[in-house]
């Protein structure tokens, strides 16, 4: 990211929030009084936040601070890895459709249209239920269903790029299709792809926490924000902090990503006006 962009508060603030959350998720567990899956037999079960347990404990006496941090690791990892998967599929699909145009484009985009019209989440649920709740499967499944927007955007951009003179020059100089796509087209898509990716991360995090909330995602003893929200919601009457802390971190993260995506898009559009 260019330093000039970071000087805009609309970009710097969410970026800083995200950095803090990532740092907390990565290093937080070492600051915690006990490992995330250890039970504090001295503390009350479902203890309120205190000096010993800053976010309180859950109904098994496990430290919630450690659990929120560890859950964050997983949620963030799902967001990033799934986005990478969707990037790989979406860019390839969109760039090929946009570059070759004509019938290839029509067929490829019709496939996207059809997939778009399907209730996709149900597929993900099916996949999770049927093939077990393996972490890798979560990554791939979410990535595999969230590439549609990316493909559409990349295709539109590629179509526009294809009319640019420097692409003609590359064609005339005898460069092959694949080489032009990799060397000239894809690098020029960077801006839109970054924006789209920034907005895909929260989508992926949402899907994972959605699955975990239903009990179809990540399994004990591992945990994620969605699973923690689910646990917290069950016991919310007695121990509301069990809901509020993971939900707060989840919402803050989603908000920061959406905010950052908005601001990046505005920054990207601005010079064109």
């Amino acid at each position: 990211m260019k330093p000039a962009l970071l000087r805009q508060p609309a970009i710097a603030v969410p970026a800083a929030i995200l950095l803090l959350i990532v740092l907390l998720a990565v290093f937080g567990p070492w600051l915690a009084p006990q490992p995330f899956d250890a039970i504090d037999f001295d503390a009350e079960w479902g203890a309120a936040p205190s000096a010993a347990h800053p976010f309180g404990t859950d109904d098994l006496g496990r430290d919630l601070f450690a659990r929120v941090c560890v859950g964050g690791r997983l949620s963030l990892a799902v967001g990033l890895v799934s986005t990478l998967v969707s990037l790989a599929i979406g860019i390839t699909w969109g760039a090929v459709a946009g570059w070759f145009g004509g019938r290839v484009d029509a067929v490829m985009m019709r496939v996207v249209d059809i997939l778009y019209a399907l209730p996709f989440m149900f597929f993900v649920i099916l996949l999770m239920v049927l093939f077990g709740r393996h972490e890798l499967l979560i990554f791939v499944a979410i990535g595999a269903v969230s590439w549609l927007d990316m493909a559409r955007i990349v295709r539109g951009q590629t179509l526009a790029l294809r009319r640019q003179p420097f692409i003609d020059a590359a064609v005339v100089s005898g460069l092959g299709n694949a080489a032009i796509l990799v060397r000239h087209v894809i690098p020029n898509l960077l801006g839109v792809v970054i924006v789209c990716a920034t907005l895909t991360v929260p989508q992926a995090i949402l899907v994972e926490s959605f699955l975990s909330f239903l009990g179809l995602g990540i399994q004990e003893p591992a945990t994620s924000w969605g699973a923690l929200v689910n646990d917290g919601a069950r016991a919310m009457e007695a121990t509301p902090w069990g809901l509020i802390f993971p939900a707060g971190f989840l919402v803050l993260t989603l908000l920061a990503f959406n905010w950052l995506g908005d601001a990046l898009r505005a920054a990207l559009d601005a010079p064109r006006r």
């Binding site: 959605f210 969605g226 809901l243 989603l254 959406n258």
Partner: peptide, 18 residues
């Protein structure tokens, strides 16, 4: 609206109940 966009139903639902 940005906050609303970042509020998944399964977070809102328990909070509403609460």
């Amino acid at each position: 609206a940005l906050v609303g966009l970042s509020l998944p139903s399964y977070v809102v639902a328990p909070l509403l109940i609460l």
